[in-house]
Simulated scan of single mutants.
Amino acid sequence: MIRKVYLPRSVDGAASAMTTYGIPLLVVATTNSAMLAGLAFALEWLPRLVAFTVAGRAVDRHGAARVFRLACLGRTLAVTTAMLLTVAGYGVPVVVMVLAPLTGFLTECSYLAAETTGGEASRRAGVRAHRVQSVLLGIDQLAMLAGPLICGLLLEWGGPDLLLGTLAACSLLAAALVPRQPTMTCATVARGSGAGAGWRTLRSLPALAWLVGGLIVSNTAVALLQAAMPVIVVTELGRSSADAGLIWSAAALASLLAITAARRAIDRWGLWPVGATAAVLASGATLAIAQADTYRDYLLLIAVLMAGEGGLTVVLRTLRSHLIPSEVFASTLSLTILLLLAPYPAAGLLVAAIPPEGLGPAVTAAALLQALGLFTAFARLRTLPTAPA
């Protein structure tokens, strides 16, 4: 399990976290422009949505290991090329704007393949599926803990070239670590995979559909905060890029602790009580963030928010592994992730379009929607008997 699932996931998670947080931070540090930072965030996330229209079917047809390896190698090539262009004297903002959509697409392909492998491991674990998912989510949170902070430090002390070189090295190592597996050639998978199969499966699972719907609304608030935070910390509060990275690293630590607690709480009280508690924690923290005005407040409140999000993600991943049939798992997984990530490019465009002083009211509106969406979802889930307890 460690060699086949956890180790490749760990290295790819580090590369993914550095990609997600490093590229917008790189733009802010080199241009000091909120508009360009928001645009880079959107350019990075829009192709990620496109990736799920093809990656799920590719994984169902050809296997998770092959897709994972090719995606990591492609990201290595893209980042290495970008690093060489910056060394040759091309402007960093221009290079990053081109790099963002490429790395966004490839990162989501590798993530979907890794999630499919984790889903298979969860199904083999049976009633202990939430324990496997908590380990996988813990790996992701450790990567998020290290990634933003490392990005800030590399950028502050070594510049863009060192940041890009480290990202390329992590991507190459992830490709080398994934074990070789035989290609999937099942005719049933070939006929039944794809976006259509994902939609049909999601519609047939009302518990999963309601939870995904609530988390879409919640992710709108999280995406807006993630897109706006480099602008708020660097431009509005006058802090360094390392300080901006530290916020999300502290949030990842809080989320990691919450994931560990959620695993034990689900053993004792069940899936839905833990999910409802996490929803209250997340929505309450976002409402408080809308009123924050100091770096310390942002640091503490975003940590609380991501602790709640960590508990919600354990619930979602456990439910997916229980309910989605294995023959269409990647296709349905790709659809759910596509829906959950849709708010991210919209958030980047919003940050690019509105002035920095308008970010506070936008966060307040998103926080109210988040609270309403999560309350509605969990109120409906209490009446559905098909979900695991």
Rank of each mutant, 00 (worst) to 15 (best):
V50K: 00
F52H: 14
T53A: 09
A55C: 11
R57W: 10
A58D: 06
V59A: 02
V59Q: 02
H62W: 08
G63P: 01
G63D: 06
V67R: 01
L70T: 02
L70W: 10
A71T: 01
C72L: 00
L73W: 09
T76L: 02
T76V: 04
L77A: 15
V79W: 08
V79Q: 08
T81A: 05
L84I: 11
T86A: 11
G89R: 05
V96R: 09
L102N: 14
F105S: 08
F105L: 12
L106E: 07
C109R: 08
T117D: 08
G119M: 07
R124C: 00
H130Q: 01
S134H: 00
S134D: 00
D140F: 02
A143P: 00
L145W: 07
P148E: 06
P148W: 08
L149C: 10
W157L: 11
G158W: 05
P160F: 04
P160G: 04
L162Y: 14
L163C: 14
T166P: 12
A168M: 15
C170Q: 10
S171K: 14
L173V: 15
A175C: 13
A176L: 15
L177Y: 13
V178Y: 03
P179G: 12
R180G: 10
P182A: 14
T183D: 14
M184W: 08
M184S: 12
C186T: 11
A187F: 03
T188I: 09
A190T: 13
A190S: 14
R191N: 10
